[in-house]
């Protein structure tokens, strides 16, 4: 937001509005609302917020192995001896690690690419943490690489690119299953989702002890 859009705001207020409006998903109106909320906030709360922001910038680093966001040189997942070191799950963003950890279904390691290949935005493979991934695959005893990029065109492009690079290394490459989401109606599914669901269909296992004879 420039000074033209807030002609009557005092300079410190205009500065804060401008800072908020740079945040993702925050438009000019929301930036103004947040600023005036801060003005009315008790001083100690404002100081705590400012300190939290500075602390994040000062203390947070990228894990030297998986490149996830962490406070230590190596993150808690990478230092955990009980994690399965033969599997690495490749994700686009640090938030994807949190989502996968919430499932409690995966016990391997991660690698965060910090983005996906997006040719129309000029983002190529060299801007992602792909070289670091290849270094890890040469050093570590990894037998399976799980590609967990987003199920959209850029995520698919990134996966296909990685598959091409990694397949010659003799490491098994797998991809998260794609298809219908839980609770969705079949009639609303698009053709790509349905085609993926058909391709990835699995045989229904019949439990012999509980099935009726």
């Amino acid at each position: 937001m420039n000074s033209n859009s807030t002609p009557s705001a005092a300079p410190p207020v205009a500065r804060l509005i401008e800072a908020f409006s740079r945040l993702p998903g925050v438009g000019p109106k929301s930036a103004q609302r947040l600023t005036y909320f801060m003005i009315r906030m008790p001083r100690e709360e404002a100081e705590a917020l400012a300190e939290a922001l500075i602390s994040v910038k000062d203390r947070i680093v990228l894990c030297s192995k998986c490149l996830n966001i962490t406070e230590d040189p190596v993150c808690a997942v990478c230092t955990n001896e009980r994690r399965d070191r033969t599997r690495i799950c490749v994700v686009e963003e640090p938030l994807d690690v949190l989502a996968l950890e919430r499932t409690r279904a995966y016990e391997g390691l991660y690698h965060v690419l910090h983005g996906s290949i997006s040719p129309v935005n000029g983002i190529g493979a060299e801007q992602l943490k792909i070289r670091e991934l290849l270094d890890r695959l040469r050093d570590e005893t990894v037998t399976e690489l799980i590609l967990a990029t987003n199920p959209n065109l850029e995520g698919e492009a990134t996966s296909m690119y990685l598959q091409r690079l990694i397949s010659p290394l003799g490491i098994k490459v797998t991809r998260l299953a794609r298809g219908l989401s839980s609770g969705a109606d079949l009639e609303y599914a698009d053709e790509m989702t349905l085609a993926n669901a058909l391709e990835g269909r699995a045989e229904v296992a019949v439990d012999k002890e509980t099935s009726t004879e």
Binding site: S167, V173, L176
Partner: peptide, 26 residues
């Protein structure tokens, strides 16, 4: 054209299909 750099990089790669979802690619 921004996407030309990526096109040049993969132009001569052999055809690479998708990694089968949920199915091991070995």
């Amino acid at each position: 054209v921004l996407s030309s750099a990526f096109l040049d990089e993969v132009r001569d790669w052999p055809e690479v299909g998708p990694v089968p979802g949920g199915i091991r690619a070995d």
